Computed example of a mutant assay.
Amino acid sequence: MFRSYLRLLLFTFGLLAGIQVPGLVKDYSQRVEAHLLESRQALSGFQETATRFFKGDLQALLRHYRSSDDPVFNSDANSIESLMIRNQLLETEWQALQGSWVSRSWHVLAQPDPQLREETLKGYSYQILLVPEAIGWGIGAGFLLAFVVESLLLVIGWVALGGRRRSVKESWR
């Protein structure tokens, strides 16, 4: 009886944890999109200058600033370069989040940008989404957790008994 309750408890815990995955992916995606829009806006003035004087090539604008003897231009070159690096990182993250829900989930769980992941986790509030992905994640995680823990406990019990099975007493009524 205890084993049945333990199995139900593990399944429920896994279900609730699994349901969180799509919400976390959604929050991470929204955070990436917001930062990307902000990054594009920060670069827009420099992009206009590059379009006007360097046929749209931001790298040429950056080289022009770096070749100047003026320390103000050199300082601006560092600022432009850091904006460009940040924008490229966010564009790469955004592209990684444009695939199927499986690839998005894998990216967020296994390969997210550490800073964006930390921001997302700090601002994340637990939620229960009733969408097919959340239900699938919940049932899968619940089953997997219950199966793995029960199997592990059975193996530990088998080892503790020295590989012997307990005899089952038959009841004849």
Rank of each mutant, 00 (worst) to 15 (best):
R66Q: 15
V72I: 13
H64C: 01
L90V: 04
S79P: 01
Q98K: 13
P114W: 01
D113L: 04
L90K: 03
L9Y: 11
T51R: 13
R117A: 05
R166K: 10
K55D: 15
V108N: 00
G99L: 01
L130M: 15
Y124L: 06
S67Y: 10
L145S: 12
S103A: 09
F11T: 02
T12A: 15
T12K: 03
R173W: 10
S39V: 08
Q47W: 06
T12L: 15
S105H: 03
G45V: 14
R164Y: 07
E33A: 10
R86S: 03
H64M: 05
P114L: 06
H64Y: 15
H107Y: 13
R52D: 12
E93A: 06
S39W: 10
V168Q: 12
V148Q: 11
V25K: 00
S82W: 12
S75M: 14
W94I: 00
S125I: 01
R7V: 05
R3F: 12
F54L: 09
W137R: 02
A96D: 05
V131W: 04
V25H: 00
L24V: 07
P22V: 01
V168F: 13
A34E: 10
Q95C: 00
L16C: 14
G99W: 02
S75D: 15
S82F: 11
E133V: 12
F11E: 03
F147M: 14
R31Q: 06
G162Y: 09
P22I: 00
S167V: 11
Q47A: 13
T12V: 12
G18I: 01
H107G: 02
E91N: 00
H35M: 08
L62S: 10
L83E: 06
T92G: 09
L153Q: 13
T49D: 08
W94Y: 15
L10H: 08
